[in-house]
């Protein structure tokens, strides 16, 4: 094994660094506290959603409902959590529990997660429409204050990303239960033979995904101050891309929380970078796709390096 193959984290870090350097080259004024704040403005909810998706990918499933779920939690934040904090908190708790129940259900009936989450995306989307039929609501004051806080040295988004990466790294890579959870993705049967209840582990992984989904919705509303039922629909695909950019694999429980956060930052930065390039708005989405392909191509080269 070469250095690169052993340290999966190198490629996501290098991708982010290259993109950041290119952005600074294009727009030197971005190299400041405020510049960075603007560049990574929306990174926090995307990073949290990516971590949520990573929890699901960790146990070899995929979540196609995450965007709808984050939209729903954003709608709950902008309505109930603002008007009646206690009821809002209870709704959030029941949403997390239903995510855990979903994981148990998928395991108990041996259902394809891709289809169940597909169905759930209709359910979450429907509930979101039900709660907030037209765009509106408002952000709870404390959440708004939390998201616009200006820590010394580095902007809020960067500090928050570091904290998220640190906490999830300790939880998934360092703790005992995190190792077992990754084991479910690696070899579920042997984890089961070792005496663990697989159904509980799956429920735990899904519950964690639900928790991070809720946090993503809340931080999103803290930034945008309002919500609508489709506010985070693109998070489904962004979060999957973020996990893979961060060196994760679809199967085998090979995930990296730090990588996932960096992947989410890279995707956020790609969008900012393209607007700095004064690219015609027609091509902005396409260029994001092209950057995604480019970074993944780099991953191929690096994997082949590992093989020889």
């Amino acid at each position: 094994m070469t250095f690169l193959a052993r340290h999966r984290i190198v490629l996501p870090v290098v991708s982010l660094a290259v993109l950041l350097a290119a952005t600074f080259y294009m727009q030197p004024r971005a190299m400041s506290y405020f510049g960075l704040n603007l560049l990574f403005n929306l990174a926090v909810p995307i990073a949290l959603a990516t971590i949520a998706q990573m929890m699901i990918i960790m146990v070899n499933d995929i979540d196609l409902s995450l965007g709808a779920f984050v939209s729903l939690t954003a709608c709950v934040t902008a309505t109930f959590l603002q008007d009646a904090p206690l009821i809002g908190a209870l709704i959030m708790l029941s949403l997390i529990l239903s995510y855990a129940a979903l994981g148990a259900l998928i395991h108990a009936f041996d259902l394809p997660a891709i289809v169940v989450t597909l169905g759930m995306s209709f359910v979450w989307g429907g509930l979101a429409l039900f709660i907030l039929p037209s765009p509106g609501g408002s952000s709870p004051e404390w959440l708004r204050a939390l998201m616009t806080v200006k820590p010394p040295f580095a902007p809020m988004a960067v500090v928050a990303a570091i904290i998220i990466a640190l906490v999830t790294h300790l939880l998934i890579m360092r703790s005992g239960i995190g190792t077992v959870l990754r084991g479910v993705g690696g070899n579920a049967r042997s984890v089961g033979r070792a005496g663990w209840s697989l159904i509980r582990l799956k429920a735990l992984a899904y519950g964690l995904a639900g928790l991070f989904g809720v946090l993503a919705g809340m931080t999103l509303v803290g930034l945008t101050t309002a919500a609508d039922a489709n506010i985070a629909m693109r998070y489904t695909l962004l979060s999957i891309a973020g996990v893979i950019l961060g060196g994760g694999e679809f199967i085998g429980g090979k995930v990296s929380p730090t990588g996932a956060v960096i992947g989410a930052l890279t995707l956020t930065l790609a969008a900012s970078f393209l607007s700095f390039m004064r690219l015609s708005s027609d091509w902005q989405i396409g260029a994001q796709g092209a950057i995604l392909i480019l970074v993944l191509t780099a991953r191929l080269i690096f994997r082949q390096g590992g093989r020889t």
């Binding site: 995929i62 695909l237 999957i240 891309a241 893979i244 679809f250 015609s280 027609d282 091509w283 902005q284 989405i285 396409g286 260029a287 994001q288 796709g289 092209a290 995604l292 392909i293 993944l296 191509t297 191929l300 994997r303």
Partner: peptide, 23 residues
């Protein structure tokens, strides 16, 4: 050629196709 997982490959490519349609 790039050995991308089909989910990611078709997802990334679809962004390009969509831009092409917009343009």
């Amino acid at each position: 050629l790039l050995r991308l997982p089909p989910i990611i490959a078709t997802l990334a490519a679809s962004l390009v196709y969509q831009s092409f349609a917009i343009w």
